[in-house]
Simulated scan of single mutants.
Amino acid sequence: MGGVAEDAVTVVSELVANSVEHARWGAIRAVVGRPTANVVRLGVVDRSKVLPILRTEFTGVPLRGRGLVIVDRLTARWGTELYPWGKQVWGELWVEGR
């Protein structure tokens, strides 16, 4: 995976933290896929249908609420897929030269 391993760990960590914090369900699932030779897709699935919001301004506690900002900066793109029973929040990393 070249030099994306550290970014992948950070993205998954932030997605898991967001799911634990906001979905508040007893179980989540981490998903790793390779939709193309140059892309690694990392996702976290939970049973909440509440969509994530990318914040641009931060007030209150200075070290909270920045998970999606980190995901947005580290990934080529990210998004949400809704399911009848919940959602998956995912981010894609570009793997150069693969």
Rank of each mutant, 00 (worst) to 15 (best):
V40K: 00
G26Q: 10
A5D: 15
K49H: 14
R34W: 06
R34L: 03
V32I: 13
R47K: 13
R34V: 09
G3P: 06
D46E: 09
V40G: 00
V4G: 04
A5V: 11
V4T: 09
M1P: 05
P35K: 02
N38E: 04
T36F: 06
V16L: 03
G26Y: 14
V4N: 05
A37K: 14
V12S: 14
V45K: 01
G26L: 14
D7T: 09
G3C: 08
V40M: 14
S19F: 00
E6W: 11
N18G: 11
T36I: 03
N18R: 07
R29W: 03
A17V: 11
V39I: 10
P52C: 05
W25F: 07
A17M: 13
V44G: 02
R41S: 08
A8K: 01
S19W: 00
A27P: 00
P52T: 06
A5R: 11
L51Y: 10
V44T: 02
A23V: 02
E14Y: 15
N38K: 12
V45I: 11
T36G: 05
A30N: 15
G33D: 10
L51K: 09
W25L: 05
G2A: 11
S13M: 09
A8D: 02
S48M: 02
T36R: 06
L42Y: 04
E21Y: 03
G43H: 05
L15D: 01
G2F: 05
A8V: 00
N18C: 08
K49P: 04
V39Y: 10
G43E: 12
G2W: 03
G2K: 03
V40W: 03
R34Y: 07
D46T: 09
T36L: 02
G3I: 11
W25I: 04
V44I: 10
G33E: 10
V44K: 02
G26N: 08
A5G: 15
S13D: 13
V31C: 07
R34F: 06
V4E: 06
V11G: 03
V31A: 01
V4W: 14
E21S: 14
S13W: 11
A30F: 14
R24Q: 08
V40S: 01
S19D: 00
E6M: 12
S48W: 08
V11D: 12
V12C: 13
V4S: 10
K49F: 07
L42G: 04
S48T: 13
A17P: 03
H22V: 00
A8P: 00
K49Y: 12
V4D: 10
L51M: 14
P52V: 09
R41A: 03
A30H: 15
L15G: 05
I28C: 06
N18D: 12
H22K: 03
G3E: 11
S19V: 01
